[in-house]
Design a binder for these strands. Sequence first.
DNA 1: CGTTGGACTAGAATATAGTTCTAGATCATG
DNA 2: CATGATCTAGAACTATATTCTAGTCCAACG
Lengths: 203, 203
Amino acid sequence: MARATAKKVKSRKRLTGDERRESILEAALGCFLEKGYIATTINDIREASGATTGSIYHFFDGKGALALALLEDAVAGWSGEAKAASDTAEAVVKASAGGLVSWGLKNPELFRFMDEIRTLAVTAPEFAGIADTLAEGQGSAATAYTRFVKARKVKDLPWAVAHSMILGPAYNYLRLATTGRARVAAKRAQELIADAAWASVKA
Amino acid sequence: MARATAKKVKSRKRLTGDERRESILEAALGCFLEKGYIATTINDIREASGATTGSIYHFFDGKGALALALLEDAVAGWSGEAKAASDTAEAVVKASAGGLVSWGLKNPELFRFMDEIRTLAVTAPEFAGIADTLAEGQGSAATAYTRFVKARKVKDLPWAVAHSMILGPAYNYLRLATTGRARVAAKRAQELIADAAWASVKA
DNA sequence: CGTTGGACTAGAATATAGTTCTAGATCATG
DNA sequence: CATGATCTAGAACTATATTCTAGTCCAACG
């Protein structure tokens, strides 16, 4: 069982089994993407990573914490994809919707995983915090929208409604696409949805 | 413990503990709506209904079957609300989007429950069948849309995309609203979303 | 009436999964 | 080379869904 690491330590403090930690994360991601969060057991992760129960719980608080750690990376990846080239209202709106679609089509299992956790978060206390971080709630987006409203670039819609018009179709489309119920060329879908998003909110 | 029933029997066949069955369904719905599917235990249902484990499993194949039975009613309620008064393209599209919003705002827990099951269905085999029945896949809607396309009433979009434009925002809005993240008067949100849906697809 | 068979009720037993715990191994440091 | 923090082991514990074995009840039939 892989005698584990001991990395370069500088000062006088600890040296963690970083590789072990990584291998656990990696194995967990594999399992979650393949079978979903609920269906994945700690045992699956144990076997896939070669770590023992003890190690897993040494590094992470539990299955939920593991998912949370992975989710943060996922969201980061998506946010990156949704960054607009310029900051005109049109570019921002289209990048939000189009970026989500494009990211989701490139990482279908990741999207499904994210969607699963988001849903569970509604009732599972261990995911409580993530709900806002996720899809919805990106506070900055709301303020950006307000700014565009003031500049009369977009319609003066309540943020929840604007959010729904911009991201709702993208989200919905990905849900269909990632469960094999959409037959459209990816590129075309992305364009259609980004354009529609802009059309729905432009002033 | 409620001696249970014995209803009117006609021919020569059995007479079921219908009341017991109903009480179990009722209790299960209460629990699912209150705590969500995952968080609800058989024990919760047992206590809430007064039935024993044996009875519950006598009438239902398990937790999943219970959820499925309840879900069918839920979907029926929603479908009812989404029926259009006339069958012009505009009326149908607006009724689909607006009806979903209006139904969801009236039955927020039911919407959350439906959304939870839909998400679980992606990976849980016991819910496999429901995925199509649910939100997406209403086959008839797809053909209706095709008909409107032929009549040049709506844009010639791939169904997955059209579906996303019509129902995506409604779904998204309900997700925000039912988790307390939307501050808009219900009536106004419903109108905005229904109008936007029509604007997105009209020819 | 009494028996009988199916419907229903009980609740203990079982299986599976997440989590906790106690013991021990490893190793940089003094 | 003793020490203490870190990490590894895996057994034990807990909670939950489900199955099983006995019943109990009752309508119909003789």
